[in-house]
Computed example of a mutant assay.
Amino acid sequence: MAMTRGQCRAARALLEWTQGQLAETASVSKKTLADFEAGKRTPYDRTLADIQKALEEAGIQFIPENGGGAGVRFKDRSRD
């Protein structure tokens, strides 16, 4: 599932991370992240995967479009 820019912003909000914190954690430039979240451009697939992986490793679960809209939430840690 490809992460949307809205999911990226929502995930950062749940974690209370700045764009700088996510960019550093994902090893991507802050400008790339800011441009993606603002809808100015779509990063390479590998870059998106790195951003999503960083968020998932921090405890975020991505919810695909299923009729109710795509979203994010914290992983259920009791199943880890």
Rank of each mutant, 00 (worst) to 15 (best):
L55G: 02
A11C: 07
E16Y: 00
G67A: 07
L33Y: 04
T18M: 05
E57C: 07
I63E: 08
K30A: 14
K53D: 13
R46A: 15
Q21H: 09
K31P: 07
R9K: 13
Q21S: 09
I51N: 04
K53S: 13
M3C: 00
R77V: 14
D50W: 04
A38M: 11
L48Q: 11
R5F: 11
A13R: 12
T47F: 06
K31V: 13
A26L: 06
K31W: 06
Q19C: 09
K30W: 01
C8I: 00
T47K: 05
G71M: 04
I60R: 01
L48D: 05
Q21V: 11
K53I: 07
D50H: 09
D80V: 06
E65F: 01
T47C: 08
Q7L: 03
K75G: 02
Q7D: 06
E24Y: 03
G67T: 09
M1Y: 01
V28D: 07
A70K: 12
A2N: 08
Q21R: 14
E16C: 04
K30V: 14
K30I: 15
A13G: 10
E37S: 08
R73K: 14
A38T: 03
A11N: 10
L14E: 03
T32C: 12
K30E: 15
D80S: 08
S27Q: 15
R41T: 14
T32A: 11
R79Q: 14
R73H: 01
F74V: 00
L15S: 05
L14G: 05
T47V: 15
L15P: 02
G39C: 11
S29K: 11
A26H: 07
P64I: 06
F36V: 03
W17V: 08
A23M: 10
Q52C: 08
I51A: 07
E16S: 11
D45H: 10
E16T: 02
F62I: 02
E65K: 11
T25A: 15
F74S: 01
T25G: 04
G59S: 03
A26T: 04
A38N: 14
E16F: 00
E24C: 02
Q7G: 00
F62D: 09
A38Y: 05
D76Y: 03
G39E: 12
R41K: 10
E16I: 00
P64D: 10
T47A: 10
R46F: 13
L14S: 06
D45C: 00
R5W: 06
R79G: 01
D50G: 03
V28A: 04
R79H: 09
P64Q: 06
R79M: 12
E57N: 10
T25H: 13
S78L: 06
M1W: 01
E65I: 03
G6F: 11
S27W: 04
F74Y: 12
T4G: 08
P43V: 12
Q61E: 14
L55P: 02
T4E: 08
Q21M: 13
Q21W: 00
R77G: 00
P64N: 04
